[in-house]
């Protein structure tokens, strides 16, 4: 996820401003925290198209413990990471990093790296087998953060985002033997299974915005369930 960035997303800030009283906190168990709107605002700054409030709620309501925030001395939101963790197709316990952002003027000081570390550690504590995410192929800062932690690129996803940008799928295994774990194939011909099965309105939007559920477990079906003349 961590959707399509705007063009200026990766511009290097000349001199990042140090954050006074920087500290990190967990989102906590408040289902609708006062930070929600700040989170939403920070994330949507770097999106070409906004997520609905339901997307944020989807994650924060179910996995508040996997959301971490960087705050300044006045408790203003400087950075945030939003994740989920659940079994992937009946197989490995998969963590998923959905959103990550640092405020423009405070980038390049390791804030995002610290947030990712916290999330990864929390997922390990919660017995995750693997962690996945997608990021745009030219998002250098993000690719660097994850490479440092040991994520590798497993797939390139053509025109993954609504704005037509291409993504990498990144994976980090946390336990040995994951490739041998049984998973169930995707239950339907989702977006990544091709063959024009997704020509319906609602599903189409979902497909383009985040194909996260399907891409990994795609079935081998080059013919996409079409009938040929």
């Amino acid at each position: 996820m961590s959707g399509p960035g705007k063009d200026e997303a990766a511009t290097l800030v000349e001199k990042p401003t140090a954050v006074d009283g920087l500290h990190y906190v967990n989102y906590g168990d408040q289902r609708e925290s006062p930070y929600l709107s700040a989170i939403r605002q920070l994330i949507s700054q770097d999106l070409s198209e906004p997520y609905s409030i339901y997307v944020y709620r989807y994650f924060l309501y179910q996995w508040p413990d996997l959301c971490f925030m960087a705050l300044d001395k006045d408790e203003n939101l400087i950075g945030v990471i939003v994740c989920k963790l659940e079994p992937h197709r009946g197989g490995p316990m998969r963590g998923y990093i959905a959103m990550l952002a640092t405020r423009q003027q405070h980038r390049g000081q390791g804030i995002a790296s610290a947030l990712v570390r916290m999330a990864v550690e929390k997922m390990i504590a919660k017995d995750a087998d693997e962690i996945a995410l997608e990021t745009e192929v030219d998002n250098e800062p993000s690719l660097r953060i994850y490479a440092h932690l040991g994520f590798i690129r497993t797939k390139r996803l053509h025109r993954y985002y609504l704005n037509g940008n291409t993504a990498f799928r990144l994976i980090l295994y946390l336990k040995p033997g994951i490739p041998y774990k049984h998973t169930y194939p995707p239950e339907y011909g989702g977006p990544s299974d091709g063959g024009g099965l997704m020509d319906e309105d609602l599903v189409a939007r979902q497909a383009a915005q985040l194909q996260l559920e399907d891409v990994e477990g795609e079935t081998h079906d080059v013919t996409g369930g079409n009938t040929y003349r």
Binding site: P191, G196, D199, A207, T223
Partner: peptide, 12 residues
Amino acid sequence: LVQSQNYYEEED
């Protein structure tokens, strides 16, 4: 024509 063959909706 496109739908009669294999392609990936949204991607292609």
